[in-house]
Design a protein around this nucleic acid. Sequence first.
DNA 1: TGAATTCCCTCTGTATACACTACCGTCTCC
DNA 2: GGAGACGGTAGTGTATACAGAGGGAATTCA
Lengths: 248, 248
Amino acid sequence: MAERETDRSVSQTVRAQLALRDLVLSGRLRPGERISELQAVEITGVSRTPVRMALVRLEEEGLLEAIPSGGFMVKAFSERDILDSIELRGTLEGLAARFAAERGVSSRDLEPLKECLNEIDGLVRQDPISVDAFSSYVALNARFHALLTELSRSAPLIRQIDRASALPFASPSGFVMAQSALPEARQILLIAQDHHRVVVDAIENREGARAEAIMREHARLAARNLRLALRNRTHLDLLPALALITAG
Amino acid sequence: MAERETDRSVSQTVRAQLALRDLVLSGRLRPGERISELQAVEITGVSRTPVRMALVRLEEEGLLEAIPSGGFMVKAFSERDILDSIELRGTLEGLAARFAAERGVSSRDLEPLKECLNEIDGLVRQDPISVDAFSSYVALNARFHALLTELSRSAPLIRQIDRASALPFASPSGFVMAQSALPEARQILLIAQDHHRVVVDAIENREGARAEAIMREHARLAARNLRLALRNRTHLDLLPALALITAG
DNA sequence: TGAATTCCCTCTGTATACACTACCGTCTCC
DNA sequence: GGAGACGGTAGTGTATACAGAGGGAATTCA
């Protein structure tokens, strides 16, 4: 906790939310463990009111679970839950791609996507991909997915995708860093990038079904990464959120 | 407001949430209109703390929108938003049906669904369907959809479907009552019920793609109802939530 | 010795007071 | 007459006090 005097422009509620989210994702709190308001007050340094606010938001975000008798506990996820969350995200992104394809997208709107693609191409060109390049990829990948989602021009859908991606292990970039430790790393990235190209092509040609299908399959790469990472049992420290996984 | 002394077993927060939700859905507040905390305090009779809590929850629910400078306003929806929300719900229910089909469901789990189907059959048998029968249908239909969703046995998916159905016009029963005023009423109900039968059949035979497709199409009946109701411009009072629609 | 009951303590739910910010209206000056 | 600045007024963000409920531990009785 280096920043004691954290920027006053951000509300106490947001500060508490960030601090508590980190706390949960870092795994310092066990799944199922109650997170009391007073405890949270001590940790965050803000008073109970914004802490309560933050807890409610984290519950909606899916990281916490309400205890029937009151208060909140850290939510536990099974491996199945995570795989389902990925499939869910893929389904929603597939819908977004289909909307974009069916409704038509101007070439002006497609430009930023294509720029994104080119930048990613530059990254995956190196053969052993550096860790830095992986970090850049994560950012660019997140950007690509955000842009694609917006192409649907559907506020309700964008909202739902954002919520589905809020869980770190369900987000499009959730398991990319885990790949960096895998021998198959580059291969997977190349496939992912091909998916990106295909979906843009499909949208351009107004092939809704194709755009939808490819985005669904694209999400399944994340599931594949997760399974590989879990099997190899290596570099799991790159995936702090996995502390939330329980047997199941 | 007949119930001044509303049941003490329910928290003030929930009471405020219900009261404010009613207020918004009734259309007494215009879309875009700010809903101040003090105003909400007067209306609900509880203090600011639970009111704030309720406002946050209603925002997550999708009925309110945060104002950047603070506070909340009533959210506005375009007709397109509503149609998209319906398609979205259908997509998610389709995924649930596919999960159920692919993963297999015991005949014991299917039984309550089939009971539901039989009860609905009893209702749609009458030729001019009474308004009471429509009400019963709404309840049974909601039950069927809830049971079907649970067949997916996927907590993340169930959660997401619940959220997607929270918007009244996106819920499976959102536009059923609107039908009751339409001449095509019975026909539409018969088709809907056929969808119900088909999806159960598909799940039983583990036909994932078929189960998914039929649920998507099933949701589109709601879109059709909406369009019919809007075109006929009749009995819109059966759809109070439409007060939230703005031109668009 | 085991089970049940009671008491206490901790925690949440709620109310309210205080401070600060943003917005709106008015007044003044150019 | 218009534009900018100043002041007032809501209205939210935050802190904190109080009350009530739930859970756990210890004690007592069978």
